[in-house]
């Protein structure tokens, strides 16, 4: 009796690397949870600068949402072995990831023009928090872009054809994760403040 159960467990088990990613995502969530709780704690104290988010953040939100769609389609075409379509979609996804980072940066320069200083002398923790939290998120997105490019170009240098979608699935899951993370941060900064 025992055997049957354990056999079933074995076949249903998730790939260890995928599981590692899920634990890692939990770890990243804790990091941002720590930072946003610090934000909430600090906000309730005196000397807190109120300012509105740059409008371009809406554009970057749309960009990152759209990139989630493209990576999903890329994974689908990889599994269907439509390699031409897969390559196009991966290229678009990576481009959108970089575009997202650029848009965030433009948002910060906008803030700077309005007189909201993120870092340095005279900066308010309110703006510094925004800079650090979104900055760390952008770093995570860029990490995703690098991972995407590594498996994409890795396929060219590999002597054997790669049929296993595992590593692409891992990157895609991570990509959706940083997407959702941004939605959380965006909602947090828009509504909680």
């Amino acid at each position: 009796m025992d055997m049957a159960v354990s056999n079933q467990q074995k076949s249903g088990r998730i790939h260890p690397h995928k599981f590692t990613l899920w634990v890692a995502m939990g770890s990243i969530v804790m990091m941002f949870a720590g930072l946003t709780s610090a934000y909430v704690v600090r906000r309730s104290q005196a000397n807190w600068l109120e300012f509105s988010l740059p409008n371009i953040f809406i554009a970057s939100t749309i960009v990152i949402l759209f990139s989630s769609l493209t990576i999903h389609l890329a994974l689908k075409s990889f599994k269907a072995r439509e390699m031409q379509r897969y390559r196009t979609l991966i290229a678009i996804t990576a481009f959108l990831g970089v575009l997202f980072a650029v848009l965030q940066f433009i948002g910060f320069t906008d803030l700077h023009k309005q007189g909201v200083q993120l870092f340095g002398q005279g900066s308010n923790p309110s703006a510094s928090f925004l800079g650090i939290i979104t900055g760390l998120h952008v770093l995570h997105v860029i990490g995703g872009v690098i991972a995407l490019l590594v498996i994409f170009f890795g396929a060219f240098f590999s002597k054997t054809k790669i049929y296993s979608p595992t590593s692409l699935e891992i990157v895609a899951t991570y990509w959706h994760f940083v997407d959702i993370l941004w939605i959380y941060l965006f909602v947090f900064f828009t509504w909680i403040r």
């Binding site: 941002f32 720590g34 870092f119 900066s123 760390l136």
Partner: peptide, 18 residues
């Protein structure tokens, strides 16, 4: 990771005037 976020804020206080 929470310790790391505490350290990141500390690094900015040390080096970037926050």
């Amino acid at each position: 990771p929470v310790l790391l976020s505490g350290f990141i804020l500390l690094i900015f206080d040390r080096n970037f005037g926050t």
